[in-house]
Amino acid sequence: MSTGNMNLTLKIWRQKNTKAKGGLVDYKLSEISPDMSFLEMFDVLNEQLISKGDEPVVFDHDCREGICGACSMYIDGRPHGPKDGITTCQLHMRSFKDGDTIVVEPWRAKAFPVIKDLTVDRSAFDRVIAAGGFISVNTGNAQDANNLPIPKVQADSAFEAAACIGCGACVATCKNASAMLFVSAKISQLAQLPQGQPERYRRVQSMVAQMDAEGFGNCTNTGACEAECPKGISLENIARMNRDFYSAKFVSEEDI
């Protein structure tokens, strides 16, 4: 049913469940169209596997337009594949050549255990947010939105930090499996808004504490996260988080 003419060899990580031992398995695919997305190529593979009576490859995906953050494949040694600024689902086969061998692995980090094949457990991110990635304002408490003017530059900068989709590519690519980019993006978004000030120093302390408890590694500023982040989240956010953390620990008298 395929329409194209690319032939590919895939080496895909297969692992039955968290405890099982996994390994790379080779698959040959033919007649792949360059207009297909990478995940559509996986659909083709899975259709073939099912028809042959094999188990399809399990991978996370949902929106298929680069915004939900579900898709997460480590392709030829890079999270979300060879192109910058996109997610796995936005990668198209025209970025590969006929005859290529493509290695696909799951995100790897102690804090992101493999669930099955290419699917990992990223709930650590949710727990970090639950620890403080919010502004405590109950429904109904709000004043008129325009009572709080926010300079455009500041609002834009907060927005850029808020663009994070929680995909975990930063953790996946970091040689230390550090989650600093993700965590700092949320801290930085809220730290730049007037609404975020009341809890600013509590927030940074509790979120960093949770991040550490989850078993992510320590940042060594290699910058790989920024380079691989599909949403272009900047390292400036990490610096801002560090600043806030020192202020919280060494200047603020609040103890948490």
């Binding site: 919010f134 502004i135 304002v137 429904t139 109904g140 408490n141 709000a142 004043q143 008129d144 939105a145 325009n146 709080l148 003017p149 926010i150 300079p151 455009k152 609002a155 834009d156 907060a158 927005f159 808020a162 978004q189 809220l190 808004l193 609404q195 975020g196």
Partner: peptide
């Protein structure tokens, strides 16, 4: 109207003009 108020209070970064308003 309340929705916008609530979201802004939560720190949702809606687009703004140079005057700082939405």
């Amino acid at each position: 109207a309340n929705i916008i108020d609530q979201c802004v209070a939560q720190g949702v970064p809606l687009a703004r003009e140079y005057g700082g308003l939405l």
